[in-house]
Amino acid sequence: MTTLTTRPEAGAAPAPVPPRRRVRNPFRANWLRKHWYAFAMVTPVVAVLGVLVLYPLGRGIFLSLTNANEMNVGRTIGENEIEPTYDFVGLGNYIDVLSGAEGTFYSRLVWTLEWTVACVTLHYALGLGLALLLNRAMRMRGVYRMLLILPWAVPPFVAAFGWRLILNDKGGVLNAVLQGLGFNGVGWLSEPVAAKFAVIMVNVWLGVPFMMVALLGGLQTVPKELYEAAEMDGASAWQRFHAVTLPGLRPVSGTVILLGTIWTFNQFPVIALLTGGGPGGATNILVTEAYERAFQGIRDYAGAATYGAIIASMLVVFASLYRRWLERQTSERLA
């Protein structure tokens, strides 16, 4: 079996840089001729992301350095154009937010981290558990799989509406069941701690099927021979799981945990539509907090952009650390 990857070998040296200026032009043309096909296939994506992501991102960072809000940005009302009157304030917004002098940044941050860790851990653990159960021959397997994937087919906003009906303090079915069992009803959407529990529960319900499907796909790529060999060597079920399944799943796990973390960190519809960040902002994560600043009350564009830039930079740092860690894990295993 030949290798499936197309990665360039580590030993492949970069093309030598031409030493004199004269040579640059032919080199350029050559460079284009060599790569134009790849560039042509990549261009649409680069154009779309450039106009719709990179440019807005740059503008967002610019806004975060100003005091722009609804009252002072430029706008066009009918025929009249109103010039923007906001000022450049340098890093003032960042200092206000990060020093904790303004608002509730750190309490939001702590809750956002709790929310992300709780959701991703439960997504992964439950997804892996169900994938392991489904990855064996049994009756009704197709039916179970179909039913278990169902929450994934439910758009998050529909799920949020449905769960609101279920979690209603008065007349919700969950409280009716709890009371039937002799417990007190819980203010799922009106008490801070219960509301936090409720949003995590709903997000776990929504997110497990994705993990399950991805990990099931990963499980099916683990060569059966490895299990047979492990069994021949007398490995217990737990040892097989630890020594064959988990390493075999590592590439898939790495990707889905990274994606899951990012998606959860940025989860908007569940919180916005289930609790609206309430009660009293208790369930607002950084993203919904930023959105509230941008589009509720007097629209604080600069404040929202500051939050956005802080969120984005935290995620970039997280992703690069995570990737480095993954790469180190892989190379240690190969060494």
Partner: peptide, 10 residues
């Protein structure tokens, strides 16, 4: 990674 909140205003 960019949440809607980062990009939505620009």
């Amino acid at each position: 990674m960019f949440p809607a909140a980062v990009l939505i205003v620009p």
